[in-house]
Computed example of a mutant assay.
Amino acid sequence: MAEESGGHATTLGVRVEAARREAAGVTSYVLTAPDGAELPRWSPGAHVDVHLPSGTVRQYSLCGDPADRRSYRIAVLEQPAGRGGSVEVHRELRPGAAVQIGLPRSNFELVPARRYVFVAGGIGITPVLPMIRQVAASGIEWELVYGARTHGHFAFLGELAAHGDRVRTVPQDTAGVIDLDKLARGAAGAAVFCCGPAPLMDALVDAMAAAGHAGQVHLERFGPVATPVRDAAADDASGPEFVVELTRSGITVPVPRDVSVLDAVRGAGVDIPSSCEMGICGTCETTVLEGEVDHRDDLYTEAERATCGAMLVCVSRACGRKLVLDA
């Protein structure tokens, strides 16, 4: 059953139909509606928020078949040294378990191209799988370069084997790292889609830029881009301490220097949904009615920042002394 906000469904109740080990530390989960009903449509590159029993919310890419309206599939790498979400998934999402998920959404859309080069690192294969399915069905030229620590860390090799030599695996322990400079030089005219650890994606961006193909790269990040240390004087000039007026809630909330807008608003009793809390997922996107935003996210492009009329309240702040938000 879907939970609603303002007359619109925001989450879906689903059941874990099956769980399967796909690689070292990686388990896939098939999710279905409890009554067997069709699930909302999605397109390659989409992800869902998974609301775990503890209240933790984590994002996972949909890696099944978009044409299958009866089930979703996600895959999760267990990271014992992480923030706890992946460990909880592996502990709690057993077959038969009920869980709430958000509606599918995407910041990683498959754009039209004459040729595609897919680059995946480890669990970064998940959003790429449905992209490959769609491109392969269309007959467009494509290739996948897939890196992992060892052969045992490659997930979904059985599915990928059907594509023959279009798929190249690079186990780091025996073959080293992916030669991104060579890949970039051969990527002329191709749309390059990459998901994986930040060092892989950062290196790919640099290699593509060096090869003159910077505009052809599309990324799905697990974490925020490293940013330079901010200048304290610049922070003072831009007004790091400010207030936010929440029009729907009818309150004004002070935001101290060392507190995010999200935490300040929640402290005042107003709940804004969030997931990554690192400025990459868009869950906490909030409409800005007045004021200039100091965008510190890794989601919007510069053009979007100038026109979107919104902010990610988990990381972004005010340039002045006040923001008016639709919250």
Rank of each mutant, 00 (worst) to 15 (best):
A2V: 07
A2T: 12
E3D: 15
G6E: 13
G7Y: 02
H8I: 09
V16C: 09
V26H: 01
A33S: 13
A37I: 11
A37H: 11
P44D: 06
P44W: 05
A67E: 15
R70F: 10
Y72I: 06
I74T: 11
V76S: 04
E78T: 14
Q79S: 11
G84C: 09
V89T: 06
P112E: 12
A120R: 04
T126E: 00
P127Q: 02
L129T: 01
R133L: 12
G139S: 10
G147E: 02
F156T: 00
R166A: 15
R168C: 01
V170D: 08
D173T: 08
T174W: 01
L180G: 03
R185H: 02
V192W: 03
C195L: 07
M201A: 11
A210C: 01
Q216W: 10
V217P: 01
L219A: 13
A226K: 14
R230L: 12
D231V: 11
D235Y: 05
S238E: 12
S238H: 08
F242A: 09
D258F: 10
D263R: 09
G269N: 12
I272C: 05
P273W: 10
C276T: 08
I280S: 13
T301P: 07
E304W: 09
M311S: 06
S316V: 12
D326Q: 10
A327S: 13
